[in-house]
Write a protein that binds this DNA or RNA. Structure first.
Lengths: 242, 242
DNA sequence: CGGTTTATTGAATATTCTCAAGTAATGTGG
DNA sequence: CCACATTACTTGAGAATATTCAATAAACCG
């Protein structure tokens, strides 16, 4: 029923650091099952102390948090290979919520086993830290976007970023990739209003730089978009998977 | 000359997770020296692959990154106990720069030893991951600030946040703590212009909520400030030190 | 004592937001 | 199959928030 780690659909993609046979076996032992959720389903709640950790296998989702005034900050888009629940895993409490945007398949790990996991598998422990560092790196860039880029640069940055991630995951063909989010999700990720996000997307579309409609993102010249976005790193290094 | 880990000035403070004798010994072996830098000195450069990792012992600093257009995003203020260089340590490259704002004393660790450190000391490896998760948690909140709070709420959030950190470090007395940064640093942290930051600070001052001048932050009623800031968590959990 | 940095304030400008209205696509119950 | 509700996207216009420009004051430094 559940996918075997040795047949993990993610491992083949060149974006990920290769795993030894032994590491795959370790992950297989740590994995306690597979979770399939429908679009719209909540996976983790902000403030919760979930007994489970996940790796996204298929589908897409959102990390977000709500403020008291009802405004929502989208922290990141979740794509296959993303690790979910680290904060609860080590600190005991999630700083944000996670929900599925499309139907998703998730690898399920047991939070109570994380300590023995660390003790017995230093390579895997290092991989967990690596992923945390990757996320920290991303959030620093996102912060710079909200703080220092204007709307056009922000939207260009977000689209280019997700496009580059899509490329690494072999989701891009003919300059197109699936991006099944709403404009409101992007607006909440960039701290822009829906209206302004919409108009900014229209500007990029009119300039023939990026088109995003019906859940499909299409970028003809990624370098031009990255240029508008002032992205310093248009290549993304390998990272491990769990 | 160099501070012995067993006499570390940080460990006494109740904010930090206690360390066993054995853990202290491990840190002592991992520690290769102490670095003292003057105010204004660079410590790590964005994009660099530093051979060293640090823990701040005394003094304060800044994490920041520059964009191509010359704008600067301050990612975080560095206070004693902060771990510096994790990204280079695991990914091989820093996503931001670090510089000293005051004279600083830093514990120095050897990056090349990090792997054996992980292998031989799972508890310490777990602590590193914990710190990474704490930073990720903070950055998520910072993102929500830049994205969803207005200037008054943002400034209130930043001041309350640093004040609470100061409390944990026993730096607060009589509602006052040292905060030796410039208004420009705060502005760059919140994605606001210097002028607007200045005027917003004046508003908080006039309302007798928070005063920050001559490098000293003074908050009479932290709950009121946290309230304006819509902070959900006014208590901060313990965390490990390295 | 000039030169530099930091903080402060006013005024004009620009960006972004909110409000409002309308379209298109989809789904539901009668 | 149609009327109606719902959701996502689009566009225009006025309002609010924040930026830029400019000038001044205060503190610090060599």
């Amino acid at each position: 029923m559940a996918t075997k780690c040795k047949h993990c659909p993610l491992r083949g993609r060149d974006h990920f650091v290769p795993m030894s046979q032994e590491e795959v076996n370790v992950m297989q032992r740590f994995k306690v099952g597979e979770l399939i959720v429908d679009a719209g389903a909540p996976i983790l709640m902000q403030g919760s102390n979930s007994p489970q950790l996940f790796t996204a296998l298929h589908g897409m989702g959102l990390r977000y948090k709500y403020l008291e005034n009802g405004k929502r900050q989208v922290v990141n888009f979740i794509l296959p290979g993303d690790f979910i629940g680290l904060q609860a895993g080590v600190m005991g409490e999630m700083g944000h919520s996670v929900e599925a945007t499309t139907k998703m398949t998730l690898c399920v790990f047991n939070r109570s086993a994380i300590w023995s996991f660390f003790k017995d598998n230093p390579e895997r422990a290092f991989a967990v830290t690596w992923l945390a560092a990757v996320e920290e790196h991303f959030l620093g860039n996102a912060l710079a976007t909200l703080g220092q880029r204007n709307a056009l640069q922000s939207v260009a940055w977000a689209l280019a970023k997700v496009y580059l991630r899509g490329e690494q995951l072999n989701m891009v063909s003919n300059g197109q990739m699936p991006l099944p989010f709403r404009q409101q999700d992007l607006a909440d990720a960039l701290g822009l209003s829906l209206v302004h996000t919409n108009k900014t997307l229209a500007r990029l579309r009119n300039r023939q730089l990026a088109q995003w409609s019906d859940g499909v993102l299409s970028i003809a010249d990624i370098d031009k978009v990255a240029d508008i976005a002032m992205m310093d790193e248009t290549s993304v290094p390998q990272r491990p998977i769990l």
